[in-house]
Simulated assay, not measured.
Amino acid sequence: MTSPAAARRARQLEERRSRIVGAARALAEEQGWDAVTTRRLADAIEYSQPVLYGHFPQGRTQIVTAVALEGFEELATALAPSTLGDTGGDAGGDVERVRSLVTAYLDFAERHPATYDAMFLLPVLVRFASDETPAVVRAGFEAIEDTLRHLDNPPADVPTTAEVLWGAVHGLVALRRAGRFPAAHQQERIETLVNLITG
């Protein structure tokens, strides 16, 4: 049985770790990941750099990984509601479900650009597309698969369709953020993608 003192210490360590991750994420969202250094983080949370390294011995990459994992958890939560609801045989039900999924994904990426970068662009200490991929990372993809499985007319190959849908939505995020797509036609792009998936 854990002693009260040990439990308190564990709680304090977790709170401190959470504070470090929160500060890194806030700084990245405000100023970009280039602004996130261990020195600036230590100053922001008023801890010494050795304390910071005590929680994250692998430094910035481990902190970016912690932010990415938070992001994956939040993305999965944002996508989960798209699997809910009974369309009652409504012919437009599939379109609404996929549109809800696509919109939720794009909204998440728009609201949290630095977190999205941590999840998909920056080096992190997580293996993707393997048996070692953490459940929290798989959860977002599983939410996409679940949405497709709950369609009145689901695709014949749900996993592959989910990969293509995820790739397409990620492409919309990346190309829009890079200025390769104009903002004016985003809704048309969404509708085209939804129609391609729902047939």
Rank of each mutant, 00 (worst) to 15 (best):
V124G: 04
W33P: 04
T77G: 13
D34K: 09
G59R: 12
Y47G: 01
L79S: 03
L13K: 11
R127W: 12
A118F: 05
G22P: 02
A118I: 07
G92C: 11
A118Q: 09
D34F: 00
R11H: 10
T83K: 14
V51I: 13
L122I: 13
P57Y: 12
Q31E: 14
V124C: 06
E110N: 08
T61G: 05
E110C: 05
R9N: 06
H55Q: 05
E96Q: 11
R19E: 15
E46R: 15
E46S: 15
G92D: 15
A109P: 02
A35Q: 07
M119P: 00
E14I: 00
G89H: 04
Y105C: 01
Q58L: 15
T61I: 15
R111W: 04
T83H: 11
R17A: 08
I45E: 02
T61C: 04
D117E: 15
A76Q: 08
R99D: 04
V21W: 11
P81G: 08
T38D: 10
F108Q: 01
A10G: 07
Q49S: 09
S82E: 13
L13M: 11
A118E: 11
Q58D: 12
A109K: 02
F108D: 07
L69S: 02
F72T: 00
T38R: 06
P123R: 03
R99Q: 08
Q62D: 04
A23E: 07
D94F: 12
Q49D: 07
E70R: 14
W33L: 10
L101H: 00
D107F: 00
R60L: 07
L125F: 00
S18Q: 14
E96G: 02
R9V: 06
P50G: 04
T103V: 13
V102P: 13
L122F: 13
V126A: 04
F128P: 00
Y53Q: 10
E30G: 03
A24S: 11
S18E: 15
V98P: 14
G59K: 06
R19I: 02
V102W: 13
P50K: 02
L106Y: 09
P50T: 00
G92F: 15
V98E: 06
E15G: 05
V126K: 09
Q31I: 00
R9T: 11
F120E: 08
T103A: 08
A42Q: 09
V36M: 11
T37K: 03
A80R: 11
R39K: 09
T65F: 07
L101P: 08
S82Y: 05
A35G: 12
A35M: 05
F128Y: 15
Y116D: 02
A10R: 13
S82P: 00
V21K: 07
Y47W: 12
Y53H: 13
R25Y: 08
Q49M: 08
L69C: 03
R40H: 08
S82K: 07
R25G: 12
L84D: 10
L121E: 15
F108N: 06
A44S: 14
V36S: 05
T38G: 10
R60Y: 01
V67C: 10
P123K: 01
G88A: 09
E29T: 08
